[in-house]
Simulated assay, not measured.
Amino acid sequence: MTESAPARPRVPRWVTTTLAVVFGLFFAYDAWEAVGNILGISWLVSDTDTAISVFGWIVLSIGVLIPIAVFLLAFRLGRTRDLLAQVLLYLTGLGVSAVVALDIVALFGAGSLLT
């Protein structure tokens, strides 16, 4: 005789949606900061006789796309899990997004993104 595992209580859709919206705002703020970096470096470049290199545009674009991609991944992985797992996935995603943003600033800085 086989015993089946007890069914987990399903998280209501409105809770999952509310959680996604709240954490989505944090991820949107990270993406907005990356857009601010692009604008700041563009203004810095416009005051000098330099330009943003192709490598610089790629790095700055990755800075914008990472928070969006990490949010979508956390949402996709967490939508069928319990509430605690969803929160932990979003918090982990925010940490990954912050680390990538800091790595971009620390490793490349404004000087290596210019030609």
Score class of each variant (00 low, 15 high):
residue 1 M to D: 04
residue 3 E to V: 11
residue 5 A to G: 12
residue 6 P to C: 09
residue 6 P to N: 11
residue 7 A to V: 11
residue 9 P to G: 07
residue 10 R to F: 00
residue 11 V to G: 04
residue 11 V to W: 02
residue 13 R to C: 09
residue 13 R to W: 08
residue 13 R to T: 09
residue 14 W to R: 03
residue 14 W to Q: 11
residue 15 V to M: 00
residue 16 T to P: 07
residue 17 T to V: 04
residue 17 T to Y: 02
residue 19 L to R: 08
residue 19 L to C: 04
residue 21 V to Y: 02
residue 23 F to K: 00
residue 27 F to A: 03
residue 27 F to K: 00
residue 28 A to C: 00
residue 28 A to R: 06
residue 30 D to F: 13
residue 30 D to Y: 14
residue 32 W to T: 12
residue 32 W to Y: 13
residue 33 E to V: 14
residue 33 E to S: 11
residue 33 E to A: 13
residue 33 E to L: 15
residue 36 G to S: 14
residue 37 N to W: 13
residue 37 N to L: 12
residue 37 N to H: 12
residue 38 I to V: 13
residue 38 I to R: 11
residue 38 I to K: 08
residue 39 L to T: 13
residue 40 G to E: 09
residue 41 I to S: 08
residue 41 I to P: 05
residue 42 S to E: 12
residue 42 S to T: 15
residue 42 S to R: 15
residue 44 L to C: 10
residue 47 D to W: 08
residue 47 D to Q: 13
residue 49 D to Q: 11
residue 50 T to E: 00
residue 52 I to P: 07
residue 54 V to P: 15
residue 58 I to H: 01
residue 58 I to N: 08
residue 60 L to C: 02
residue 62 I to E: 04
residue 62 I to D: 05
residue 63 G to D: 01
residue 67 P to M: 07
residue 67 P to C: 06
residue 67 P to N: 04
residue 71 F to V: 06
residue 71 F to G: 07
residue 75 F to W: 12
residue 76 R to W: 04
residue 76 R to I: 05
residue 77 L to A: 01
residue 77 L to G: 06
residue 78 G to F: 00
residue 80 T to Q: 11
residue 81 R to I: 00
residue 83 L to T: 00
residue 85 A to P: 13
residue 86 Q to N: 03
residue 87 V to L: 12
residue 88 L to A: 08
residue 89 L to N: 04
residue 89 L to G: 07
residue 91 L to F: 08
residue 91 L to G: 13
residue 95 G to R: 05
residue 96 V to S: 08
residue 97 S to V: 03
residue 97 S to E: 01
residue 99 V to D: 03
residue 101 A to W: 07
residue 107 L to E: 09
residue 108 F to R: 11
residue 111 G to T: 12
residue 111 G to H: 06
residue 112 S to N: 11
residue 112 S to D: 06
residue 112 S to R: 12
residue 112 S to W: 09
residue 113 L to N: 00
residue 114 L to D: 01
residue 114 L to I: 14
residue 114 L to E: 07
residue 115 T to I: 10
residue 115 T to W: 11
